[in-house]
């Protein structure tokens, strides 16, 4: 079943058009949602949650219409907001149980489910302590736990790593990945950090000024290019000259030599030339395209070895 579908979805706020005839069709998976500030990401999330109605066009989530079946959507969608939205004076257990009960779980089931999701997000002894005393990382975990409490089929996460330090970020990203792969829950991650999206997502949705900019599997943006980078501690100039002498297209870039990978024989030529010149070899790697190229206006064309 299509996870998210929109047809000519439009949302006006007075003069400002937040979404402008947006057409989307997204299959289940871990989906990264990126866009400039003000591109319409938050508006899109709010419409998908059934919180605000579109001005024109239609949208559906898991086959449910966002206007007519908003109540049904809330049963199958979990939402982790970006801002600090947790009550400071209750414990995580109490809060998540409450959220589970609001979603319609009976008391016992809500309690069991809470214990399960808190364990899943990595909150143990501290779950009875008041949330007000939690660190940023723990608060983010509680926000994720409450989104998972009613066993949704789709999670919408708005900047889930905001404010986290490198260790906290890694743990949160790992958690998102596990939630998506082991539990088979589809996840939409809105983030400004393209590296993060590259790391966890399988699909990318990029919107810009209310329009669709890109919609494709992540792998299409991070494909290997036909450029082989060879880095040496010293003598990059000699290496570039020697390889150019053998007829390969080579360009020196600081300690790197960039080579056009037209033929497999290049690998052996690199190995033998490095060995003959006795150079300390740091790296041989096929260059990859980067997600950020879609945001670089002056994006250099891939494979630019002249």
């Amino acid at each position: 079943m299509t996870l998210i579908e929109t047809r000519s979805l439009t949302k006006d706020y007075g003069q400002v058009k937040a979404l402008d005839r947006l057409d989307l069709g997204v299959e289940p998976g871990i989906i990264g949602l990126v866009g400039a500030n003000g591109a319409g990401k938050s508006t899109l999330l709010k419409i998908l949650l059934g919180l605000i109605p579109p001005t024109a066009g239609s949208a559906s989530v898991l086959g449910l219409d966002v206007v007519g079946e908003a109540d049904e959507i809330r049963k199958v969608v979990g939402y982790m907001p970006e801002h600090d939205c947790l009550p400071p004076d209750v414990g995580a257990t109490e809060f998540v149980t409450h959220m589970a009960r609001i979603s319609g779980l009976p008391r016992t089931a809500a309690r069991e489910r809470t214990a399960e999701v808190l364990r899943h997000v990595g909150l143990y002894e501290e779950r009875y302590r008041q949330i007000g005393g939690y660190s940023t990382g723990m608060k983010q975990r509680v926000k994720l736990a409450q989104a998972l409490a009613h066993d949704p089929k789709l999670l919408l996460l708005d900047e889930p790593t905001n404010g986290l330090d490198p260790t906290g970020r890694d743990e949160m990203l790992d958690l998102i990945k596990r939630t998506g792969t082991e539990f088979g829950i589809s996840v939409v991650v809105a983030s400004h950090l393209l590296g993060e999206i590259e790391q966890v997502c399988t699909y990318l949705l990029a919107i810009d000024a209310g329009h669709l900019l890109q919609s494709a599997p992540i792998s299409t943006f991070t494909q290997r290019t036909a450029v082989l980078a060879v880095e040496v501690e010293e003598g990059a100039d000699r290496l570039a000259a020697a390889l150019a002498g053998l007829g390969f297209k080579a360009r020196q870039d600081e300690a790197c030599v960039l080579l056009a990978l037209d033929d497999e024989s290049l690998y052996d030529a690199v190995r033998d030339t490095v060995a003959e010149l006795g150079l300390p070899l740091v790296r041989i790697q096929q260059e990859r395209r980067r997600l950020e190229e879609i945001f670089r206006d002056d994006a250099p064309a891939a494979g630019g070895v002249q």
């Binding site: 501690e233 690998y267 070899l281 790296r283 096929q286």
Partner: peptide, 24 residues
């Protein structure tokens, strides 16, 4: 590390093995 970097190309040539990727 520096000793390794000096021998890797020669070692693979001796072994007759094609290197397609070396990454720290």
């Amino acid at each position: 590390l520096s000793a390794f970097r000096r021998i890797i190309a020669t070692a693979s040539r001796t072994a007759g093995v094609r290197l397609t990727e070396v990454s720290p």
